[in-house]
Nucleic acid binder design. Structure first.
Length: 372
DNA sequence: ATAGGGTTAG
């Protein structure tokens, strides 16, 4: 029984004993439904709360708005916030930051700005979370100078930026390949009283590896050790995949060894990246053995990522016939191949046949409207 | 009882 089911059972017992849940109970339960991916149940619960005569307060509304935003339902979220005001329940900083974050995740600067303006009109002062969400949406729209100005305004005003504000800015810069600027921010954030933490370094590392700046990435790896910043699983996974991205598969496997020695518990991303590294350097048998060993332990593994690497490896180093066996195995286990899986197979197939002109990957076929 | 930051195939 999952947590949500357990909570529901408790709720049912409450009703049976004639106890009516209060707004707090409904709000927590609704949050649970939203987090469990059960939008309909969450909304049903909201309606039931109204029927029970519980008056939703600001926190209850914020929870509903956050749930709607997390499903990308921005029109509905805004409409709830308007209804909230009409019902005389005052929106607070959390209401506005939730809505601005929702628009930011959708890349909608106009939507986010409208909420900002509304907030100012209503006499609500932005806090550090609201500002940080605005930095996020500005970055997603490549308005890095605006984002920087906003951070400077914060520092000059009475709402100083914190480490998360800078991490958001650095992430935005890295996502646009502006790694030099990101490095500059990394070095300057201390002047604002914000110490970089492990997330800051993880973001910079990812940015550098993606930009093929392997040398600088390695410098950062050294800096993390010097600074006595404790690497976490994400750090290791980022370095691991970064090494693979740079074609340094041996180095990647060494990092994996270091992770295990350090006592960090690997996750499916770690395993998939290691399997990818093995397959890329032709140690497909080792990769298969590792997958077999991991399969016994938990559920949900291997997954589509594992099989895509494995199929690529078998196709390129063993043979297409064997790859088809693994494709069957995958489908029998109920794992659905995706576009990348088919691409790995099609690429492998054509590289074996050779000199047949351009490679017809699934992407090419879809782009050109060709039919096989 | 509510809000902002991190990693994997192509």
């Amino acid at each position: 029984m999952g947590n949500v089911e357990m909570a529901l059972a408790v709720l049912a017992k409450m009703f049976l004993r004639g106890c009516s849940p209060n707004v707090h109970t409904f709000t927590s339960l609704m949050k649970g439904y939203f987090m469990g991916g059960r939008l309909c149940e969450a909304l049903d619960l909201w309606n039931r709360m109204i029927q029970e005569g519980s008056e939703p307060n600001t926190v209850a509304y914020n929870t509903l708005i956050h749930g709607l935003c997390s499903y990308g339902k921005m029109v509905e979220a805004v409409s709830v916030s308007q209804k909230m005001e009409r019902n005389g329940v005052f929106p607070n900083e959390t209401t506005y930051s939730t809505l601005i974050d929702g628009f930011a995740k959708a890349g909608d600067l106009v939507g986010a700005s409208e909420i900002w303006n509304k907030m100012i009109t209503n006499g609500c002062l932005p806090n550090v979370v609201v500002y940080t969400c605005m930095v996020d949406v500005l970055c997603r729209n490549s308005m890095f100078n605006h984002a920087l100005h906003l951070i400077e305004n914060m520092a000059n005003g009475n709402c100083p930026p914190n480490t998360i504000t800078f991490n958001t800015f650095i992430k935005g810069l890295c996502c646009s390949g502006k790694t030099e600027w990101a490095m500059k921010v990394l070095n300057q954030m201390r002047q604002y009283g914000c110490a970089p933490n492990v997330t800051t370094y993880n973001e910079v590392l990812d940015g550098l590896f993606n930009a093929k700046r392997t040398r600088e990435a390695l410098q950062i790896v050294g800096e993390i050790e010097e600074m006595e910043i404790k690497s976490n699983l994400v750090t290791y996974n980022t370095i691991l995949s970064g090494f693979c991205h740079a074609g340094m598969f041996k180095g990647a496997l060494q990092i994996a060894g270091k992770l295990l020695v350090g006592g960090t518990k690997p996750d499916s991303i770690t395993y998939n990246t290691v399997i990818y590294a093995y397959c890329k350097q032709g140690e497909v048998k080792t990769a298969i053995q590792l997958v077999d060993r991991l399969t016994k332990k938990g559920e949900g593994y291997p997954d589509v990522f594992t099989y895509t690497s494995l199929l690529w490896g078998v196709c390129n180093w063993i043979g297409v016939d064997d790859a088809v066996v693994y494709l069957d195995k995958m489908i029998n286990e109920g794992i659905c191949p995706n576009r990348a899986t088919w691409n790995a197979l099609v690429r492998g197939l054509f590289s074996k046949l050779g000199h047949l002109g351009p490679i017809h990957t699934v992407d090419n076929i879809l782009a050109n409207g060709e039919v096989t």
